[in-house]
Simulated scan of single mutants.
Amino acid sequence: MTEMYTLKNSFADHIIWDGPVYELESNQIHVFDIRISMYLQRLDEFISLLSPDEIARANRYFQQKDRERFRISRGMQRIILGKYLNLPACSLQFKLDNHKKPFLLNDTSEIYYNLSHAADVILLVISTAPIGVDVEYINPDFPYQEVIKDHFTQEEISHINEMNSSERFFKLWTRKEAFLKATGQGIGDDLKLYPTLDGEHILQKNVVSNSQNWQQLSFKLDENYISSITSCAGKISYCFSKPD
């Protein structure tokens, strides 16, 4: 008999953004909303924290906005993770795992993190268990009808087309991407295999390599952005923060 695991999807109608807390409890997820436009004046500071490899990667971006986004995301990532580990931000060392997902070489407490960006937003999530996040700008002009037939089930397509189509499309899309990032499956896999409608779904073992139950929370940062977080932690509590 094929062993089965569950994926539970839910949506938070209202979230409260609070001050940052840099101590992580078991089964807790910390979410940091970083606005690129608010940190442009600190670019020199961020560059001073980056490794030579990170600086080289930033310089390979053709457009200035992409170079700035990379420097801010890596700089803030270092600053925030450094506070959890009580280490200088510039001392953190990162490495890619077999799925090309970065992890901390400095970490002895098994902190998991993931990062996503869209337009002016960088979203960083930190947990004690494997985690994935995706954030998207809700673009009403995006031609999602060209995408849904190849990557969504008929039930998901009907849900998208019922009402608030752009918002519903991006909600379900962030769930698919966040799930793949959390499990390390890779975006090239068949996205129809990963259920995104609200409620609890059965996942067969041959669909996901991680033998665990998963849950996803979707929420709107504001009227322009929507995000989903995937985790295999137990009874999860969330802390939504605007960083210092």
Rank of each mutant, 00 (worst) to 15 (best):
D150Q: 12
V121R: 14
D134R: 06
T174M: 02
N161C: 12
S166E: 08
K192Y: 06
N213Q: 13
K181V: 02
D198E: 13
V208M: 09
I122N: 08
D150M: 10
I148C: 06
N213L: 10
E136N: 07
T174L: 01
L197H: 10
P130Y: 00
S209G: 09
L124T: 11
L191R: 03
G184K: 04
I131P: 00
I148N: 04
I202V: 15
V135M: 07
I122C: 14
F169H: 01
A182P: 02
K205S: 14
G184E: 01
N164A: 06
Q154M: 10
V147T: 10
D198I: 04
D150V: 06
E177Q: 05
V125Y: 06
L123K: 04
W173F: 12
F179H: 02
N213A: 12
G184L: 01
S211H: 15
P143K: 08
A182Q: 05
E156M: 06
P130T: 02
I126S: 00
D141P: 05
E200Q: 15
K176F: 06
G132D: 01
Q204F: 15
A119W: 06
R175Y: 05
W173Q: 04
E156F: 05
R175F: 05
T128G: 09
L180Q: 05
V121F: 04
N213V: 13
F179C: 00
M163V: 10
P143S: 07
G186T: 07
K171F: 08
A129D: 11
T196K: 08
S211L: 14
T153D: 05
N139K: 12
L193G: 04
P143I: 04
V121W: 03
V207Q: 10
Y144D: 04
N161W: 05
L193Q: 11
K192D: 01
K181G: 02
A119D: 10
E177F: 01
P195R: 03
Q212N: 14
R168I: 01
W173R: 03
P130G: 00
E156I: 03
G199E: 12
F179V: 00
E162M: 09
D189G: 13
H151G: 04
S211W: 12
S127E: 02
T183D: 10
N210Y: 13
N139P: 08
A119N: 12
V147L: 15
N206T: 15
V125G: 03
L203D: 00
N206I: 11
A178D: 02
Q154S: 11
A182N: 04
S211M: 14
I187K: 11
A119M: 09
F152A: 03
K205G: 06
I160K: 02
L193V: 08
D190Q: 13
S211P: 07
E200H: 08
G132W: 02
I126T: 05
R168V: 00
P143W: 08
G186P: 10
F169N: 00
S127W: 00
